[in-house]
Amino acid sequence: MSTDQPDDVRSLLRSLRVFAGDLPRFDPDDAAPTPQAMFVAWLRAAADAGVREPHAVTVSTADGDGRVSARVVVLHDVVDGAWRFATDSRSRKVLDVDANPRAALSFYWREQARQVRLEGTVRRVGAEASAADFLARSPASRAAGLATRPGEPLGSVAELRDAMGTAAERVDREPGTVLPEWTLLELVPDEAEFWQGDPGRAHTRVVYRRGDDGWTRGLVWP
């Protein structure tokens, strides 16, 4: 059992460095005209800089009663102004989206002290696109999807591993098998923020907002 006291934890947190290393510059005048173009530019820069898993994104949803939950998933695509990710339709995030389609995505690229936040509406892309997305996954990922039952009680890790092994054999035998519950989702933002951290705390925040005539963007105070 931990013997840490509140003061110990506070001291530890205060001792940790933030915004270390050589950080990229971000001139707001160079911001792209749309959040999709801006995001793709930052994503490529993150990948080129060696940021680990720059496609990892926190998806925040709320159910019909307003209870919020968040989890990290992998971004699958950015197309036609929508950010796509996928999951099992039995998962909490899909149940949340069915009750309340408003959601948020957030990316954090620590090595560059950059954040991207997107707020908007989530919708299902469709069965055909969902099936294609499932089949584009690695065999191990497809086996994991076929084996698991999101959120249900699990008796043991051994039970999970046995189910994964059985599913992997099925993928080998039937490579065209698609999990019926696999659901491709996309968030269409009406607001997007690009945040560049600064060691001196003069952080740069550029916010895009969707209007009747398209996107507008401007600086906001950090």
Rank of each mutant, 00 (worst) to 15 (best):
G165F: 13
Y208D: 01
P150Q: 15
E169S: 11
Q115Y: 05
P180A: 11
V122H: 05
E191M: 11
R110I: 04
A168T: 03
S141G: 13
Y208E: 01
R149W: 14
G197N: 11
E186H: 03
V207F: 13
A104V: 15
R137Q: 11
R110K: 06
R124E: 07
A163D: 10
S130A: 13
L146W: 00
A99G: 09
T204N: 08
E152W: 04
Q196S: 15
L185F: 04
G211Q: 14
E111A: 15
G126Q: 14
G120S: 13
A143R: 09
A113P: 00
A129C: 08
R102P: 13
G126T: 12
A113T: 07
L146C: 09
A103R: 08
R209Q: 09
E193H: 11
P101S: 14
P175N: 02
E119N: 10
Y108I: 10
E111F: 08
F107V: 00
P180I: 11
R205L: 12
A131I: 00
V94I: 00
E169N: 04
L146D: 00
N100Q: 10
T177Q: 13
A136R: 14
L184E: 03
T87I: 06
V171P: 06
E193R: 04
A202E: 15
Y208A: 02
D198T: 06
A131F: 10
N100F: 01
R114T: 02
T166Q: 09
S91V: 13
R102K: 12
L184M: 13
E169R: 07
R201Y: 10
V157S: 09
P150M: 01
D88T: 05
G145E: 05
G145K: 02
V206Y: 05
N100T: 10
L146F: 04
V206C: 04
D212W: 08
T177S: 12
L118H: 04
E181Y: 05
L184S: 09
R102M: 15
L187F: 03
V178S: 10
T148M: 13
K93I: 01
R114I: 06
V94D: 00
V125W: 12
W182D: 07
A103P: 05
A163Y: 13
Q112C: 03
R124H: 12
S89V: 08
A104E: 07
V122G: 07
T204M: 07
A131K: 00
